[in-house]
Design a protein around this nucleic acid. Structure first.
Length: 492
RNA sequence: GCGGGAGUAGCUCAGUCGGUAGAGCGAUAGCCUUCCAAGCUAUAGGUCGCGGGUUCGAAUCUCGUCUCCCGCUCCA
């Protein structure tokens, strides 16, 4: 029973992926060259949808909170940034696999365990030598040396008991590149693995120039890059992805209060953009990252299971504190009420734009059987929130003659400055309705012969297929009202 | 990284015993048409993922490689 459900759900996901490609939402990157693993491009409809999601987030953050402002920091940052953040040391692990048990280990951990074994047996010198040797090899990035050491020491896999190892590979989280036209070691920099650090290094700039008073937040939307061990599930886990992050700076000791507040507010936002409450849940982290003292994920029930779409972390003063240490610049705030300086604590909300996009797309994808008996047929459409839909309305003359196209063009030209709309007169009206259902256009405006007589048109609603007749002059207000971000923001 | 499955037109897929590739939908240009993809005509689109090998001949057999999917592993 459960298997059957999984299969059906996987089919639905496959359909969503196909649909995303066929209707211009998401294409595999460099597809003509066979694609590039875990990299995807957004197509003509995808970019509109994604931009709308980002706007809904940006407005919810900056427009609705007078104490939150936005920035747009560069992707390139000073290399020391990543030492301070812990990314350089924390995520450079040498990995090794045992070919018999198929288990993967941290190579350095295997050697350290061996050393501990020696120590336990009272061979302290031997243990110390081994640890020193390992440190030297890691220092010089000598992976072959680490492998040789493991073989030399006859370290076996605890599961298979064999010494049949693969070579030692480096797991590098960050992508590196060269800054400047002359390549040398000194100019190696990283593509940022998270946007947060761009906010932290600008903490004082924003606080001072914006005269921000704690508590306050800095929001940012931007690309981030990570090498993933396994990159899978379509756009869910990509090497290049976009984050929507907000760092909220608070008085030390207040962090749990704001952590709870943002936990609630962020869930509300996901509901407001159309994700159903029953498919959203919190997932509390038991194991915390090096920088956090509390962490929770907001998960959405994708066809392939509950997965994280946003993380809310209490990051303490870890980041600002470390940047103080490494930069030797004081990153503190003078609190008038307390009459003292301190390094603020940080509550982070970090949503994946691509993940929210995928959740919205999965949720919107609807296959329905409509009609009875012989008339019964399948209908596929995207039930997108009107404010998020790539195209807000299609302007369609019911036939391509009798002056209807001209009349429709006039309406289109009049509305195009206010609304993202399209004009189409190819094919029967039914086909055109269907085409727009498939990309989630909420409204289709039909111009018929009656229009020529009394300046009224019909509006056909995507979800219900119901039509209403309205005056041309009412169109603008009516469509703008229903596709405006206000309907989302009011729920945030 | 390991194991399993797959890759043929934009999409979904056929393709027999090895004999130089098809359908449906979609697209394009028209015709017809007053409301939900279904009428008519025409057209475009594929070195069968890529590269070797076997063969007179490979979409088909074989080896390698790349990409995707499922499971394991790892993960902030």
């Amino acid at each position: 029973m459960e298997d059957k459900t999984t299969i059906i759900e996987n089919d639905i996901f496959k359909n969503v992926v196909s649909h995303a490609k066929e209707y211009g939402f998401v294409f595999p990157s460099s597809e003509i060259y066979d694609g590039l693993q875990a990299v995807y491009d957004y197509g003509q409809n995808g970019v509109e949808l994604k931009n709308n999601i980002k706007q809904a987030w940006w407005k919810a953050m900056t427009q609705l909170h007078e104490n939150i402002v936005g920035i747009d920091a560069a992707i390139f940052m000073h290399p020391t940034t990543w030492k301070a953040s812990g990314h350089v040391d924390g995520f450079n692990d040498p990995m090794i696999d045992n070919k018999d048990s198929k288990k993967r280990y941290r190579a350095d951990v295997l050697v350290e365990e061996k050393a501990a074994e020696y120590a336990a047996k009272g061979e302290q010198t031997k243990a110390d030598d081994l640890v020193k040797k390992l440190a030297r090899l890691l220092e010089s990035n000598d992976l072959k040396g680490v492998y040789d050491l493991i073989v030399e020491e006859k370290i076996t896999c605890p599961v298979s008991g064999t010494c049949n190892w693969t070579e030692v590979r480096q797991f590098n989280l960050m992508f590196s590149t060269q800054l400047g036209s002359v390549a040398d070691d000194a100019s190696t920099i990283y593509l940022r693995p998270e946007t947060a650090q761009g906010i932290f290094v600008n903490f004082l700039n924003v606080q001072k120039t914006g005269r921000m008073k704690i508590p306050f937040g800095i929001a940012q939307i931007g690309k981030a890059f990570r090498n993933e061990i396994v990159a899978r599930q379509f756009t869910f886990r990509m090497r290049e992805f976009e984050q929507m992050e907000m760092q909220f700076f608070v008085r030390p000791g207040d962090e749990m209060k704001y952590y709870e507040e943002w936990k609630t507010l962020r869930l509300k936002w996901h509901k407001a953009i159309g994700l159903p409450a029953e498919k959203l849940k919190y997932h509390k982290h038991e194991k915390l990252a090096h920088y956090a003292n509390a962490a929770v994920d907001i998960e959405y029930e994708f066809p392939f299971g509950y997965k994280e779409i946003e993380g809310i972390h209490s990051r303490t003063d870890f980041d600002l504190g470390n940047h103080e240490k490494y930069s030797k610049k004081k990153l503190q705030y003078f609190d008038n009420e307390l009459n003292k300086n301190y390094v603020p604590y940080v509550v982070e909300t970090s949503a994946g734009a691509d993940r929210v996009f995928l959740a919205i797309l999965c949720n919107a994808y609807t296959e329905e059987t409509v009609g009875d008996g012989e008339q019964q047929k399948q209908r596929t459409y995207l039930k997108l929130h009107p404010a998020l839909a790539p195209i807000k309305a299609a302007i369609l003359p019911i036939v391509k003659k009798d002056g209807l196209p001209e009349k429709a063009r006039k309406i289109y030209d009049d509305l195009k400055y206010d609304l993202r709309i399209t004009y189409e007169d190819k094919d029967t009206i039914g086909k055109r309705y269907t085409r727009h259902d498939l990309i989630g256009t909420p409204f289709c405006v039909a111009i018929d012969h009656q229009t020529l007589e009394d300046d009224t048109v019909t509006i056909r609603h995507r979800d219900t297929m119901q039509q209403e007749r309205v005056k041309i002059e009412e169109l603008r207000l009516k469509i703008r009202k229903q596709t405006s971000f206000k309907s989302i923001l009011e729920l945030c």
